[in-house]
Nucleic acid binder design. Structure first.
Lengths: 292, 292
DNA sequence: TCAAAAATGAAAGAAACTTACGTTCATTTG
DNA sequence: CAAATGAACGTAAGTTTCTTTCATTTTTGA
């Protein structure tokens, strides 16, 4: 019983375990946040079992003891969020198919990025971002323009001087005022978007560093200094929105997180200020992600 | 002393605290992973202080006690950045951490949606979308405005008359011209965004159907006819972009795909035309997702 | 059906944390 | 300058929480 994360193991236990184990697993899954903090006496009482059973249960799940078990629950909560982990609902076939299509597509798209992305390039890009005096993100079309906006959204929080442009003319115009301290993020799923390619050419002419997030070996990839390959698989399912967006978001998050860590704790000050500035909008719930 | 996350507070303490506090904070920061599991007797010994001092120290940092303190350390570690580690992480290890943090977060967020989403609501929403004469998507702020734009992007391809508004005034204005054939998608991660809540109120007054994609039981959820719960976990890791965006994208895709299937094969005609119209932009690669 | 094995609980024990209280040391006040 | 004050800290004695031991019950398999 050491398969997957602790929640998965709990699920398996809730299904296959002995009577006492089932009850315990159910109680815990029903409220992980509670279970991660409650003393085992409470848990034992709720599940109607004895305390030693709880200890044994934790060991059976591959933990060193109750404390280690709680430690792992805390970590799961940190990643998965502080909400409950209810049993997945039973679906009818059609609903399940839609859910699977979207979810499998998204997961696969991100997995592909994981497999192929060159983190040394990401690190290099983060370094460029930190050192740039002026950053632009270009993207046109449904997927790529979202990318440009997101890139702006993620980096501006870190205090970086970034502007996203989804309009072709604005892209060209802003490229024309670049210099060697500028950094361009050029995003295009196809690698064929004319305005983006041209803008990269213009910006380079004036000495800007250019990073393309695009299809490998595309025109755009060739035009830029650095390319992060981003493959959008042709959609087999015509009704399903393309899962490439998840891959793009993933790459953007990698860049944002790497950049944030490069900058170090001082970015927290910027995030704090943003949060304070939102308090005037009645959205100051602390602990909530910054900016709705 | 309740500013920022626990690590930040430890840092402050290491700088400003009393003699014993400084020593403790240093010991802990030097190896958070150890500190999160060691009994306080060990910590006390290492820092050359007494056990009660450790307890008091934890309280001073805003924790309920030592156990709560360790709980928080565990959470920080789960997604911790490189700056948490005593020795700078080797590049590979650090890269793996960043990849894991982003990818696990995204996967968990989507899994959550899978587990709890009520597909009968999604189906009902799709039906509303198909029958509406006029659809608006509202969202403000980094996460939710992306949602509004994406909603527009996904549904307009299906030939539906949708407009996304991320500007508060435009939201109110467009809400004011709704009638009973209108459908509103109101997106807000917090459920507190004033312009969105008010616009829903206005639109309902004129007979529009309203769908909220928002935090359950929030003000916005109460204001709308139908609510799709969308929980964003509080950010425990300030450096990591919130993974809630993946959950939101996921919900939007579910709605888009369900709607597309409801409309049936005729949507393909719309997609075909969009593709043709792009050919003038040199982006007509067939088999590629429509619209970059 | 019976014996062996597994599962469970009660109670005692060990570990970890907290409280109560007293000492020290720096600071303030008369 | 000395006494008073109070913050910081440690000692020792709780208290809580978890674990072990061992006896009992339940299940399994021949």
């Amino acid at each position: 019983m050491t398969t997957g994360d602790i929640v998965n193991r709990l699920r398996i236990c809730a299904a296959d375990g002995s009577k006492a184990e089932k009850r315990l697993a159910e109680i815990i899954l029903a409220d992980i946040s509670y279970a991660s903090k409650a003393p085992i006496a409470d848990l034992a009482l709720r599940a109607g079992v004895s305390e030693p059973t709880v200890t044994r249960f934790c060991r059976a799940l591959g933990c060193e003891g109750v404390r280690d078990f709680k430690f792992q629950l805390a970590q799961v909560l940190a990643i998965g969020g502080l909400y409950l982990f209810p049993e997945p609902l039973v679906r009818d076939e059609r609903d399940a198919r839609v859910l699977d299509a979207v979810s499998d597509g998204a997961t696969a798209a991100m997995q592909r990025v994981r497999d192929v992305i060159d983190m040394s390039v990401v690190n290099a890009v983060a370094e460029m971002a930190v050192n740039a005096k002026h950053i632009c993100a270009y993207g046109s079309g449904g997927v790529s323009s979202m990318g440009a906006v997101e890139m702006q959204n993620r980096l501006f929080r870190l205090g970086l001087p970034i502007v996203g442009h989804t309009d072709g003319q604005m892209q060209r115009m802003s490229a024309a005022v670049c210099d060697k301290h500028s950094l361009i993020f050029a995003i295009s799923a196809s690698g064929q978007a004319n305005s983006v390619i041209e803008s990269v050419g213009i910006a380079r002419q004036y000495g800007a560093r250019t990073v393309a997030i695009t299809s490998p070996d595309s025109d755009l990839a060739k035009e830029a200094d650095v390319a992060l390959p981003f493959i959008i698989a042709p959609d087999t399912q015509l009704f399903k929105p393309t899962s490439g967006r998840y891959a793009l978001l993933f790459i953007i998050d990698l860049i944002a997180m790497t950049t944030a860590e490069l900058i170090g704790p001082s970015v927290l000050e910027g995030l704090r200020r943003i949060r304070i500035s939102l308090s005037g909008l009645n959205m100051s719930d602390p602990g909530r992600p910054v900016g709705d």
